[in-house]
Design a protein around this nucleic acid. Sequence first.
RNA 1: GGGCGGUUAGCUCAGCGGUAGAGCACUACGUUGACAUCGUAGUGGUCACUGGUUCGAUCCCAGUACCGCCCA
Length: 987
Amino acid sequence: MPMDKTFNAAEAEARLYDAWEKAGAFRAGANASRPETFCIMIPPPNVTGSLHMGHAFNNTLQDILTRWHRMRGFDTLWQPGQDHAGIATQMVVERELAKSGQPGRREMGREAFLEKVWEWKEQSGGTIVNQLKRLGASCDWSRNAFTMDPNFQRAVLKVFVDLYEKGFIYRGKRLVNWDPHFETAISDLEVEQVEVNGNMWRLRYPLADGATYRHPVAFDEEGRPTEWEERDYLTVATTRPETMLGDTGIAVNPSDERYAHLIGKEAILPLVGRRIPIVADDYADPSKGTGAVKITPAHDFNDWGVGQRTGLRAINVMSGRATMFLVENPDFTEDCTPSDEALALDGLDRHEARKRIVALAEEQGWLDGIDQDRHMVPHGDRSKVAIEPMLTDQWFVDTAKIVQPAIDAVRTGRTEILPERDAKTYFHWLENIEPWCISRQLWWGHQIPVWYGLDIWPARFEDDGDDTLDEVEIFELLEDGAFNHADPTHHCAFDFEGVSEKFLDDLASLPQPLNNARVIEVASRAEAIDRLAQALADYNLNEDPTHLVYPVWRDPDVLDTWFSSGLWPIGTLGWPEETAELARYFPTNVLITGFDIIFFWVARMMMMQLAVVNEVPFKTVYVHALVRDEKGKKMSKSLGNVLDPLELIDEFGADAVRFTLTAMAAMGRDLKLSTARIQGYRNFGTKLWNACRFAEMNGVWEGHATQAAPPAATATVNRWIIGETGRVREEVDAALAAYRFDSAANALYAFVWGKVCDWYVEFSKPLFDTEAAAETRATMGWVLDQCMILLHPIMPFITEDLWATTGSRTKMLVHTDWPSFGAELVDPAADREMSWVISLIEEIRSARAQVHVPAGLKLPVVQLALDAAGREALARNEALILRLARLEGFTEAASAPKGALTIAVEGGSFAIPLEGVIDIGAEKARLAKTLEKLEKDMAGLRGRLGNPNFVASAPEEVVDEARTRLEQGEEEGAKLSAALARLSEIA
RNA sequence: GGGCGGUUAGCUCAGCGGUAGAGCACUACGUUGACAUCGUAGUGGUCACUGGUUCGAUCCCAGUACCGCCCA
């Protein structure tokens, strides 16, 4: 059955992908013929996500490297998988529940909710995998991993325990970025700064104990105060009046003469009545605002720092949902008697509280004024709500302790980051790294492997010395709830069994019978208190120590998603088991990822792999840029400029989309994607398709079989294209080895379209009628095979389909050996000859077109003076020159006939008689224009060669080349001038 | 404010000390043994600006302007 006119991507893609999968073509090690391994870890997409342009780009590049290495015989693994994406997924599922009118997460409880999440994962988790398959991604799907797989969970928990035991993880009450929408802490990196229009409110805080001072109110030209007023208050400025309820101090700069004398005195916090000290700190900038800053250590990062330095208390005045938390807040009411107006704010949203406080300040006369202000407000990158700095207990990775090996690895080149400038970003971030908050108040994720127990033997409780618990002591414990006042103790272990042992060790030192209590797991601290109290009460009655229990509860929080994806390289390869894959493929070869997650992911993988297995996770990191729309805007749903890769694949085929992304993948530069470009590369696929179709029509594929070595050829044309093929193979390999994907694509485009289709196919047409026909068929078959092979990593579908419909094949293209021939195939003589032939044809075509010779008209041609090389070239290639230049029959003459076109080429010239047909004016203009251009070039060359410094200092070959070019140019110029002179004789 | 980039044809971008390139768009012609998802020919550039280094600068260095991105 003859081939169709175009490749039917829609029909073929699914069929071909299926065939690859059925053949196990993508399995780890498939087609391996050499010992070297090649491994890429996919940056795991969110399990509930869908393919966007960034994924398409990222995965195309990975697939190219993977397919290329696999064809070269490397033992290749492209490890796929998905990320559970804590916040994102939990958000999606909660939204789904709300949409379908089901009870919310809190109503159904943790266990039921997690079931829903797993259901959702089952339902939508395959989407992205199928979309990657549509793109042609040749991952080993049999090894598909998920960050919530049981073995991956084990790895994550084990690493947590490991890092905890090494002292790299700690728990602490710190100010964190709190997302009031999701009610969880988030890391610095998940916060975006958004500039907003707001106000700066000036508030007057009265000084305590009747203190007053003179405050300057007018100044002379040099800024010296000239007038003062007596004040009994201090004015502070704030963008967030609602935080004033948590103020515990006022900072002034010690060098600020206006206020320095107040340092050590106190002010009274309006509404609250709290006495707050005036402290000295450089954070207060005399030139900003009023120069006096209210300090709320529990709700502002800068204030926290001031508080730490000056010993101020931190009072949290908000709940996790950013509503005011006052009435039952002992910290808030300690040492003061808040007004009723203040207590009435309890439970209000922070924004509402702000309005009320400003209104109260105005009413009560302590609002000094309002200035409009534009400032940055931190927002959650997922929730888009304003972040609330919040004082909470969280888990942190002490990054300072593990960062150095990650820095050194890149400095010393163990891992290389490309392009180089991204290494700078990497260093900059790592060298200024902050502790990493890794606990999240979410349900979907890896629950922290830490259990808490009541501190039942706090220091203030004293045993009477007999090491047994008597009735009085039990009563004391129960009644006072002594253990209820101390902070819980905690232990970290891989599982409950492990942690039980640790608690048992603690209990061993306690009095009888507590030292024999059984450790049990309960849900919460409250339940633990109940159970323990109950157990003690029972013991008091029955004195049976075997029923005594020591209840512990697990930390309800989960780990930051990036903590688990930080283990992706070892986790997917089976760590902590010593698997064969781990031994073989780790460290992996290259990571291909977007610049936006250098901090989130790359840096953390480096730190964690080095901390856990003391090895870099990958040898090379290739960082790519963003795919933007054709105007350079970031694609976003709200702008409506999102290009859906799947729609593009439907319209143009996966190969066209892939080729476009590849050709645009210049290192470190954003891609501006337009459909026109994709269409162009779809056409490129069609071009190759039709070249193969042409070959089919000319019997090229009859009896054709895959062959590594080029056929022996004698015809110059065939020798030439074989050499060109050798060149392009070297070029493609060099480009891919250097991650110059764009160079590889462009070299192939220029070769396949510009050399094979434009010239070689045309040259072959007359050759099929000569004795060189068989050789030409063999050459064409071999060359087209090489096109398919070399293009396969970029355009896998069309090439595999062509492979199957042409010749007889022992293997699918996906496993066909990558060629190793190179420029040794170039025959310099053939190269020179074909360059000459091509330029002759181009000259003639150009001349014809410019003097408006009808395209279809065949013209005779007269050969004038011609050197030996030219004569030989002409003799060997006469048929194709006649055909492509639309000429008929060469004759020889000593001089050009009147009214003829003149064609000057290296080594001679030709004339095309056009008596009566020629437009003499046009021909004169053409010659004059050509001469002018030539003269300009020659003038430049003469200038250079006339400069003794150039001849003396420039490399010899540059000087020689300039001389040769000048000679040739002058020769050509002479011919053109002569022709021009002849024409002038006529008209 | 700190850091990192960019500025080359109408558009999108390569290039990079020694003759300025590609694709798209545009103009004219054209169905010639595959391809109109095509062919042939052509138009189009003070390589942002100013200095410097060099025999020679689009390329290296310094500065200026404008535009991006990241971090405060």
